[in-house]
Amino acid sequence: MNNLQKNRFIDQVFKILGILFTMLGIFILGVLIYNILKVGVTRINWDFLTSLPSRRPEKAGIYTAIIGTLDLMLLTIIFAIPVGVGAGIYLEEYAKKSKFSSLLEINISNLAGVPSIIYGLLGLGIFVRFFGLGGSILSGSLTLSLLILPIIIVATREAIKAVPHSLKEASYGLGASKWQTIKNVVLPSSFGGILTGIILSLSRAIGETAPLIVVGAMAYVPFVPHSVFDTFSVLPMQIFSWTTRPQQGFAIAASAAIIILLIITFVMNGIAVYFRNKWQKKLK
């Protein structure tokens, strides 16, 4: 084999390796989903969704976990969206090149890389102990809000950056003030991008377990929370607690709960991708 043939051979081998590795990722995804479906799908029924957790695996359900997840997400949306979108608007439209704005920028990039469990410790120190909110839904959602803030801010900035400059100038040219321009021109045209970022950040928040464990989410909550100061469980927390038990029945229940969690995650990601495509088409 001469050198040219050898080079071609290596090239082909690497191509096949590339295809194999790419397929491997998808294959593993398939194995994961298949195994979980195989174990858990028969366990899913109306009772499973509407039963309280139980020490007997065949009777246990995810009702409190689902309600906990919904409550937590609702509060997180209320806290994180205005702050995250507002901060994004500030950075993109108001902040001038200054020490403060570059500090903000470095800081946000760093926050995005802080492990989620550290946010848990922050929530434990500030919300749970310092403000005395305890291991409540309020503490949990405030903690998650801080966790997803960087994602929303970055998405908002990207979306605003994509708004054509000419549109803004047209608005200023008609005598609109800065805020009027943002409200009437910038936000409507960047809405799709911002929405995509928000949905993706929520899909991340829904799957988070570690920070909520630290903040004090419960593995076993036998009642539905009535106020934001009540203790709570969430879906991933329920899965974690079932995973750590030895009985096979809990492994089945965990698989069933994972199916529900994956459906929620995939649907949210799907919606986000849909909005992104639609919005990108509109921009063009």
Binding site: G84, I89, Y90, A95, I153
Partner: peptide, 28 residues
Amino acid sequence: IKEKIIELVLKFFASITILTTVGIIVVL
């Protein structure tokens, strides 16, 4: 004044990210 207030509120929102970092460091 309204414009100024809005800007300040947005600036405060952005500052929350700094407070978060400060909070993490202080708590730890």
